[in-house]
């Protein structure tokens, strides 16, 4: 079973996230995670390799709101170029109800681990291209 890589309590009360240098430069991701994960995020590899074709299909649901170019507008965060394990952790936290945005819970609650992994590969491979 994939491990849920997300802890709610007891870590880094200051809100600093152990995300690593590569992630630190992703301001949009950092801002999003800071907002959504008041404690801390420990992500782990789910051990599933995502299926790119499945990810491409499933992603069509996401891009009704999240722009594939990586452009962030108002209350819809950019989701391209994220490290896969972070993407998996965020989606699992919506699916499991640790985060309570009803739109995202609604989307994530029907996703299997394989589907989340597929989405993580798809969006992880996209590079921000928008202005």
């Amino acid at each position: 079973m994939p491990q849920i890589g997300f802890r709610r309590t007891g870590v880094r009360p200051g809100g600093t996230m152990p995300l690593g240098g590569a992630v630190a430069c992703l301001a949009a991701l950092a801002a999003f995670l800071c907002q959504a994960l008041p404690g801390s995020a420990h992500s782990t590899d789910s051990g599933i390799e995502g299926d790119p074709a499945l990810g491409a299909y499933l992603s069509s649901e996401c891009v009704a709101c999240h722009q594939a170019s990586g452009v962030q507008v108002a209350g819809i965060p950019a989701i391209v170029g994220w490290p896969r394990d972070q993407f998996v952790a965020v989606m699992q936290s919506y699916r499991d109800g640790h985060r309570d945005n009803p739109v995202m819970h609604n989307v994530a609650s029907r996703l299997t681990d394989e589907e989340i992994a597929a989405l993580a590969v798809h969006f992880g491979n996209l590079k921000p291209t928008g202005q």
Binding site: V63, A64, C65, H66, Q67, V73, A74, G75, I76
Partner: peptide, 8 residues
């Protein structure tokens, strides 16, 4: 969200 969705 509403405004971001529209743009998306």
């Amino acid at each position: 969200e509403n405004m971001g969705w529209y743009a998306g």
